[in-house]
Amino acid sequence: MDTAAKNTERDHSSLPDAGDGSERSRFSRFRPRAVLGGPGSWRTVLLQAVAVTAGVLLFSRFVVQPFQIPSGSMEPTLQVGDRVLVNKLAYGSDEPPRRGDLIVFDGEGSFVAAGTEESPAVEAARGVLATLGLAEPDETDFVKRVVGVGGDRVVCCDDRGRLQVNGVPLDEEYLHPGDAPSEVDFDIVVPPGRLWVLGDHRSDSSDSRDRLGSPGGGMVPVEKVVGRVDWIGWPLGRWASLERAEAFSRVPDAPPGGHGGGHG
Rank of each mutant, 00 (worst) to 15 (best):
Thr140Pro: 02
Leu134Met: 12
Thr131Phe: 00
Gly133Ser: 06
Gly151Glu: 03
Asp101Gln: 04
Phe111Cys: 00
Asp138Ser: 14
Glu108Asp: 04
Glu136His: 11
Leu102Ser: 10
Leu132Ser: 11
Arg99Leu: 01
Tyr91Lys: 08
Pro137Met: 11
Ala124Leu: 14
Glu108Thr: 12
Thr140Arg: 15
Glu139Asn: 13
Gly150Gln: 04
Asp138Phe: 11
Arg126Ala: 06
Gly127Ala: 10
Arg99Cys: 06
Pro137Phe: 04
Gly92Ser: 14
Arg99Ile: 09
Glu139Gly: 15
Ala124Ser: 13
Arg99Thr: 02
Glu139Asp: 15
Ala124Glu: 05
Gly151His: 04
Leu102Asn: 08
Arg153Tyr: 11
Val146Gln: 06
Val122Lys: 07
Gly109Glu: 07
Phe111Arg: 13
Phe105Lys: 08
Arg145Tyr: 10
Phe105Pro: 01
Gly115Ile: 02
Pro120Ile: 11
Thr140Gly: 15
Glu95Ala: 15
Val122His: 02
Gly133Thr: 03
Asp106Tyr: 03
Phe111Gln: 12
Pro97Arg: 00
Glu118Phe: 08
Gly127Tyr: 02
Lys144Arg: 14
Arg145Trp: 11
Ala114Pro: 00
Ala124Gly: 14
Gly92Pro: 05
Asp141Glu: 12
Ala130Glu: 13
Glu95Leu: 10
Gly133Asn: 03
Ser93Leu: 08
Gly127Met: 01
Val112Cys: 02
Phe111Asn: 07
Glu123Asp: 15
Thr131Glu: 15
Glu117Gly: 00
Leu132Phe: 11
Val149Ile: 14
Val128Arg: 01
Ile103His: 05
Val128Leu: 12
